[in-house]
């Protein structure tokens, strides 16, 4: 992995312990392979999907509710069957996974960035800034992500011109999710920063008059990245699930270009009827994806969590 890296990030990953632990756990290897496979096939979906589920002209209502190919009434052109609109489920899942992964990645990335800055500032500077940031965190934690989603949706709709509303849903979901994740990052970073800043090396840097910004970025940041990486991984799964939940609550990605969450929300209607495949396969995909990521998160935690070393 990063054995020859000279950077200061993730010192833990550099020692052979991480790689050793990785090799020693078939579960982690399996998870990594699954995650890699899913992510790459999702990103390549326009190339490998048998149909284009986003092109309405290619969708025929008369093809709706065809069961998976191995069923009696199945058709080989629709391997996992079709949904209620006649959309090929396999293609929809591939495209949907891509959307979900983008949502997870971007929202967690934004949350980590925001949380890092806020947490570092709060933990290092303390005093008024700490109080202020932590109260903002308190306020943020009060609002369920559905309220945040509705708020952002409403505000952006009234501010942006109509032509730009089309792509809005994705942005709204990402913002809502990252807003509901960043407080956790900020709290963790703040706590670690408070511990780190009393360590001798930071004290020493302060004594020789290094500016606070440099100290934060060069000395403290690398040392709080471990827990942040763990939180980020776990929240990647949480964000993907959160997208599905927001969809269930009615503020999701539109059904014409569905995400995994939207597919599950629609498929949910067919849970009691015979057409369970509509929800089964998107559900399995989601569960497998999140599970793989969580297992990787576990491994990261084992490797990076100072408590366990």
């Amino acid at each position: 992995m990063t054995s020859n890296s000279t950077g200061r990030f993730l010192p833990a990953l550099r020692d052979s312990d991480a790689w050793h632990k990785f090799k020693g756990s078939p579960l982690t290897i399996g998870a990594a392979i699954i995650a890699l496979l899913m992510i790459s096939s999702a990103l390549l979906s326009p190339l490998i999907a048998p149909h284009d589920p986003f092109d309405p002209r290619a969708i025929d209502l008369m093809n709706s509710l065809i069961p998976p190919a191995w069923h009696e009434d199945g058709q080989s052109s629709f391997l996992l069957g079709t949904d209620d609109q006649g959309r090929d489920l396999l293609s929809a899942i591939l495209y949907g996974t891509r959307t979900s992964i983008i949502v997870g990645f971007v929202s967690v990335g934004a949350a980590v960035l925001l949380g890092l800055v806020a947490g570092l500032l709060a933990g290092y500077l303390g005093g008024f800034i700490d109080g202020f940031i932590m109260r903002v965190v308190d306020i943020q934690m009060t609002f369920p992500s559905i309220m945040v989603a509705l708020l952002i949706d409403g505000i952006s709709r009234s501010l942006l011109p109509r032509e730009q509303h089309d792509q809005l849903a994705l942005v709204v979901i990402i913002l809502a999710l990252s807003l509901s994740i960043w407080p956790q990052v900020a709290r963790t970073v703040r706590a670690s920063t408070m511990v780190e800043k009393n360590r001798e090396y930071v004290q020493a840097a302060r004594v020789i008059g290094r500016p606070a910004g440099i100290i934060m970025v060069k000395h403290i940041l690398p040392n709080v990245m471990g827990p942040v990486l763990v939180i980020a991984t776990i929240n990647f799964g949480v964000a993907i699930l959160g997208e599905a939940t927001l969809s269930f609550l009615g503020v999701g990605i539109p059904a014409s270009e569905p995400s995994l969450g939207t597919l599950i929300r629609i498929g949910n209607n067919f849970l009691f009827s015979g057409e369970r495949w509509i929800v089964l396969y998107p559900g399995l995909t989601l569960a497998l994806l999140v599970l793989a990521i969580n297992l990787l998160g576990d491994w990261l935690r084992d490797v990076l969590d100072p408590k366990l070393r």
Partner: peptide, 11 residues
């Protein structure tokens, strides 16, 4: 225990 939290609550 991880499988349990790999599905959305509503599901």
């Amino acid at each position: 225990s991880l499988i349990g939290i790999s599905l959305p609550t509503f599901f």
